[in-house]
Simulated scan of single mutants.
Amino acid sequence: MEISEKIFETAFLEFSKIGNGISNERVSIFKNHPLLVKHENYKYDIKDDAKNQLLTNTWKDADLGTGRILECVKNAINLNSNNLIDWRKKDDFKKLKANRENEKLLFDFFKTKIEDENAFNQFHEIGFSYQLIAYLFFIKNFQKYMPISQEQFDKIFNSLGIDFKTSHNCSWRNYLEYNEIIKQFKKQLSQRFQNVSLLDAHSFLWIYGFQLGSIDEKPKSKKESKLKEREETEILIDKAKPELEIYKPEKVVDLESLPDLENEIDYIENHRRLMEIGDLAEKIVLEDEIEFLKNDFPDLAEKVRLVSNNPKLGFDILSFETDGSQKQIEVKAVSENKNSKSFIISRNEFSKSKIYSNYYVYCVSGINSETPKILRIKNPDFENNEEFIIEPLTYKITFE
């Protein structure tokens, strides 16, 4: 499908209006455009995080039927930051059984041992939603395939006079045409900007859709919606609070309620146990990093080091990406409470997470089980990412 220059100019004019006076001429690389930086470039992080969860380079034929491949793909789908799939659509993947046949399909798809059209049709037959299928193709090859939100993109295409619909049209042919339309916009954008990717063109159309009045700046996850609701409730409560009078506390300790000595908490023992758990978590990650690299990148595997004995570094393990670049890994044994996870981070670790170029936090759960799990968070922006809730647990008091 050929996108005319007139259609592109219409979209670009509205895109510029949304920029509220931002001069497009001053931006040479489209990815650096302030609108993309503010609203859309998080999708690159989702893609990278998904790749780190997939670990397709480590998949072996012996894994088929064990559930490992299914678990890797599930982790790549259920990223906390992933709003490219409606949270209700993510449940589609839970229907898939961890048998050899299903894992062989995923193995062949991500290892490119099966034609993409064949894989698409098999995913559709299993019962995957269009949105989930598109996401799998996106994390496999983001230079060729894009995520999809049928209802919103149908509104975008319709407003531009493009006679094409994706809703209720889940098919390989429809998906190819959808990506072809985005490629046409990439071609037009490339005449104005440098280094335009297919994902940039996808973001351009999504931002254009803001003016339609029905697209959020960034799709809200279930967690984000709950946080917003809680914040609004807290504001109402604060408004209703009367001013408290200044008073002097007069409470004293009830001597009868003091515990017996034998029931008191042994803080030294607790600390020792926490240290053991932390050491075990580091051992699990160290072995996993070496195992991941040693088959295809033995030289890099030999360089992986445990450096937790030097707390000034702010991380526990020095490892490497497959391209040879360093990974600074801070290991955390996480505690889980229903659907949330938590860990303690020191001031130094918090600071170093902002400094190192390739800083990871590896969250290890199920440490004492036969199959511990590792959640990898790359370059976490704890202060500015709403997925993280920061709570002060200790305070430093200085006085003269």
Rank of each mutant, 00 (worst) to 15 (best):
E5L: 09
I7W: 03
S23L: 09
E25N: 06
I29C: 06
P34N: 07
P34K: 12
L36A: 05
D48S: 03
A50M: 04
T56Y: 09
A62S: 11
A62P: 00
V73F: 08
I77M: 02
L79A: 07
N80T: 07
I85E: 02
D92Y: 11
K97M: 10
L106P: 03
D108T: 05
D116H: 08
A119P: 03
F123P: 06
L132H: 13
A134M: 13
F137P: 12
Q143R: 13
I156V: 12
F164H: 09
S167I: 06
S171L: 11
R173I: 04
N174D: 03
I181S: 00
Q184Y: 06
K187C: 11
Q191E: 15
E217V: 08
E217H: 12
S225N: 10
S225I: 07
K226E: 14
K228I: 15
R230P: 00
D238L: 15
E245H: 06
I246Q: 11
P249H: 00
E256C: 04
S257K: 11
L258R: 08
R273E: 12
E276V: 12
I277L: 14
K283Q: 12
E287H: 07
E287S: 11
E291D: 13
K294T: 06
N295S: 15
E302P: 01
E321Y: 10
Q326D: 09
N339G: 09
F343N: 10
R347D: 14
F350Q: 00
Y360V: 02
S365E: 09
G366Q: 00
G366N: 04
E370R: 08
T371L: 06
K373D: 14
I389C: 08
T394H: 14
T398A: 11
